[in-house]
């Protein structure tokens, strides 16, 4: 159970860090100043959540192994791609605004229903982080939903770009509900209902897509997976190479 807890905590942390990092790539390049600020805010929220989870994971790791000396930064900067457990969706490149919005929307809705359950779980630290994060995630869901609707029901161009983004990303959403071994252990220990999360996710996504005058892709029966257990897309390696460059180039320095 201890190892599964560590893995699950890292999964939560990696998800938040990687999508937060992706969003931060927009900073200074957004389509309009107000939205540049908004996406950067979301990035900051997510990196903040990641730090909370990493700090807790580090504590657990150090309890387990007194020589480990894990910190939030060793976990973020000194693990390799196969150690990262984030879902494939979160590492997907930004693409255009439609793709970023769609990625955020799919992910935030998932995070929202997951945290809804985690806030009542028997692990006090995880529950506390989830409660605090829910305020932020509620806003992320609202913000990304509004953009989904705006783009879907905006112009012809925005509608077709959004459609394309949904088609591109849809096959990465199934993984969110594919339980890895560590999730299965944690979910049953904490009475987390994966089917409920999945149903709530589907009905929310369907509702917003309807408002956006769009539909769930019809022929999407197959989905990608692997992220949760460390088999990632080609994209993650580049992200990590960039993110970890200083820590890797100058080992042992403090920044």
């Amino acid at each position: 159970m201890k190892n599964e807890l560590i893995d699950f905590t890292l999964y939560l942390a990696d998800n938040a860090l990687i999508i937060g990092h992706r969003n931060s790539e927009w900073c200074g390049h957004g389509p309009v100043l107000e939205q540049d600020i908004a996406i950067t805010n979301i990035s900051l929220d997510l990196i903040g959540q990641a730090r909370n989870f990493y700090q807790y994971a580090a504590q657990l790791i150090n309890e387990e192994n007194t020589e480990a000396k894990a910190t939030e930064d060793t976990l973020a900067y000194l693990r390799d791609g196969w150690d990262f457990k984030n879902s494939l969706l979160t590492e997907h490149p930004n693409g255009d605004w439609a793709q970023t919005i769609t990625r955020q929307f799919f992910f935030s809705v998932y995070q929202y229903y997951l945290y809804q359950q985690l806030q009542n779980c028997s692990n006090e630290q995880i529950a506390a982080i989830a409660i605090k994060a829910l305020k932020e995630v509620t806003y992320h869901v609202k913000w990304s939903s509004e953009w989904m609707i705006r783009l879907g029901d905006g112009t012809e161009e925005s509608n077709s770009r959004l459609k394309k983004a949904i088609d591109n990303l849809w096959m990465f959403t199934g993984e969110l509900f594919d339980l890895s071994a560590y999730e299965s252990v944690i979910y049953s220990a904490w009475n987390i209902d994966n089917d409920k999360i999945k149903n709530e996710w589907e009905s929310k996504v369907k509702g917003i897509l309807e408002e956006a005058t769009l539909e769930i892709p019809v022929n999407a029966t197959w989905h990608q997976s692997g992220g949760k257990t460390g088999t990632h897309s080609e994209h993650l390696g580049f992200l990590l190479a960039e993110m970890q460059s200083l820590q890797r180039a100058y080992p042992g320095n403090e920044w």
Partner: peptide, 16 residues
């Protein structure tokens, strides 16, 4: 580049 690539986003927001 940011401004030009954001044009369709601003147009969509205005149209909506």
């Amino acid at each position: 580049k940011a401004w030009e690539e954001g044009a369709w986003v601003r147009e969509a927001a205005a149209a909506y």
